[in-house]
């Protein structure tokens, strides 16, 4: 077994470095889907988090509690909900989106959104109120004051977005359910690893696992740098 693993790992490296088209196609799908999802969900989630942190309205506290408990919603549950909405008899069945990359993007938008809202709310609620008050007293309209507060917290908010990206690019539940793991179309890194492993072909699985590990490492280094920057100020 150990020998197998060693051989498989070497083969995996060779696959990666030789630019194996199938392998790199899978990596491309992962990044394409997750980058689209994070770019769409983060701005919306941060604005909602800001409203929850700064506006006063009834049922604000129950809403915060609900959103906090939804933060770590199982991805298969999101997959189930999106599947039901997109399936032929679902609410949006006419759009024929099930088993497309768009369906995967939608699923990951939901996961990222639910992850970012409570995290960004934490960042914004703990921030210095004087930023908002100063912007307002200097004549900024509410929307501009909001952007100013977010700019002041850019390092913290970017860290939240990066953590959300790490969560969606590694998730398998939603992708496999609404994407369908279709070769060179909706097969991304996690679904490919699941498939290769079940077939007993570890090399490609290990190669893809390495990509995710390197990505996680890079994101963590970047996060550490951001936190350092945030603390200096």
């Amino acid at each position: 077994m150990e020998e197998n693993l060693g051989h498989a790992s070497l083969y995996a490296l060779r696959l990666l470095l030789s630019g194996d088209p199938d392998l790199w196609n899978i990596i491309g799908v992962s990044f394409s889907v997750s980058v689209r999802a994070i770019l769409i969900s983060t701005p919306l989630a941060v604005v909602l988090a800001f409203l929850i942190a700064y506006a006063r309205f009834p049922a604000r506290h129950p809403l915060i509690a609900v959103l906090q408990s939804l933060q770590s919603i199982p991805t298969v549950v999101v997959g189930l909900l999106v599947y039901m909405l997109l399936s032929r008899r679902g609410l949006f069945g006419d759009l024929h989106l099930l088993f497309t990359q768009t369906a995967m993007v939608i699923g990951q938008i939901v996961i990222a959104f639910l992850f970012v809202v409570p995290m960004a709310h934490g960042v914004l609620a703990a921030a210095d109120r004087r930023a908002w008050e100063t912007a307002r007293t200097l004549g900024a309209a509410p929307w501009r004051a909001m952007l100013t507060v977010m700019t002041e917290l850019r390092f913290g908010l970017l860290a939240v977005a990066i953590a959300a990206f790490a969560r969606i690019i590694t998730e398998v539940g939603t992708s496999i359910m609404v994407g369908g793991n279709i070769e060179s179309f909706t097969r991304n890194i996690p679904t490919a690893i699941a498939l290769e492993t079940s077939k007993g072909e570890f090399a490609q699985g290990i190669a893809l696992g390495l990509v995710l590990l390197v990505l996680a490492l890079l994101l963590n280094v970047f996060l550490g740098m951001l936190q350092g920057k945030g603390e200096m100020r």
């Binding site: 210095d128 930023a131 008050e133 700019t151 002041e152």
Partner: peptide, 8 residues
């Protein structure tokens, strides 16, 4: 403010 707030 008592402690003035300057933007970063």
């Amino acid at each position: 403010h008592q402690q003035v707030y300057l933007f970063d």
